[in-house]
């Protein structure tokens, strides 16, 4: 990624920084969607670095902005329930399929719930993925109550005592309070049967500063436990995910890097940071 290359050159090299150069760096950070707040924080900390190993110091600055929370999926005693949420078009359904493939490949049994009963053909889309990946999909009719589909799926996976249940939900803009209430209901109803261990928010890497508002409001509604950052195979740098980690202390857990069901990787912060600062 190397978005910090100029930045590193700057603090590695000269000890005096003229104001114009800091502006160039600011431009670069802002251009990666880190946002004005995080950018000014990073620049302020970086300005304090004098002497010593700049690279080590910078890694440290960035590390401080990452969440300290665990990045591995929590595991319940019974079926581990993972809810996948997000605004429209971020790649929730595809991420659900990838996650299922990922868990299945490590030998776990997985059930999917097609609780996106709103978007045309979303249920079919998940069923097609289910067949490809080879996992059972619990679906209601289009237009069915999403909470009831999720409840049925929870009951079914408990019967099957499957290791995981992944619930795909309809995309919703976070400023629609009725749709957010619907999402809360899905979670509440599932929890009558099983504990929801993870609520993963899918963030499109091309998203700008609105990503922070999304994360904030989804967290208020359903207590988001982690992020999946999608479409990182494009030209977007996904800096907003770093801004979310920094502002809201929600860890990135997975990244999506393509359209195939294997294009999902566990987020590795060390690699991410060295990727950011590599020249």
């Amino acid at each position: 990624m190397g978005i910090f290359s100029k930045f590193v050159a700057k603090i590695k090299g000269e000890s005096t920084a003229d104001p114009l150069d800091w502006q160039v760096l600011e431009t670069e950070l802002l251009g990666s969607d880190l946002g004005p707040t995080l950018t000014s924080q990073i620049i302020q900390s970086a300005k304090l670095i004098k002497g010593g190993d700049a690279l080590v110091s910078l890694t440290q600055i960035l590390n401080e902005h990452l969440s300290a929370k665990s990045r591995t999926l929590s595991k319940s005693d019974q079926t581990t329930v993972i809810m996948v949420v997000g605004v429209n078009g971020t790649g929730k359904t595809t991420s659900v399929a990838k996650l299922a493939a990922h868990l299945k490949s490590s030998g776990s049994s997985v059930v999917l719930a097609a609780a996106d009963t709103f978007r045309a053909a979303a249920v079919d889309q998940l069923q097609t993925w289910g067949k490809r990946v080879g996992v059972e999909v619990i679906a209601g009719k289009e237009g069915a109550e999403p909470a009831s589909v999720a409840f049925d799926a929870a009951t079914r996976s408990k019967e099957l005592s499957s290791d995981y249940l992944i619930i795909d939900t309809a995309g919703r803009l976070h400023n629609k309070s009725d749709l957010m209430a619907e999402l809360e209901k899905v979670k509440r109803v599932v929890e009558k049967t099983l504990v929801v261990a993870e609520v993963l928010l899918v963030i499109d890497a091309t998203t700008g500063q609105n990503g922070i508002a999304q994360a904030k409001i989804f967290t208020e509604a359903v207590a988001v436990t982690g992020l999946i950052v999608t479409k990182l195979d494009g030209s977007a740098r996904g800096g907003v995910a770093l801004a979310i980690e920094s502002a809201l202390d929600i860890p990135i857990k997975f990244i999506g890097t393509g359209e195939s069901d294997t294009d999902l990787a566990v987020f590795a912060p060390a690699a991410y940071i060295s990727g950011l600062i590599a020249d």
Partner: peptide
């Protein structure tokens, strides 16, 4: 284009 897009809008639009 998604109205929520960030700085990458420029690169994508150019592409």
């Amino acid at each position: 284009v998604d109205a929520m897009m960030g700085q990458d809008a420029v690169r994508t639009a150019r592409a």
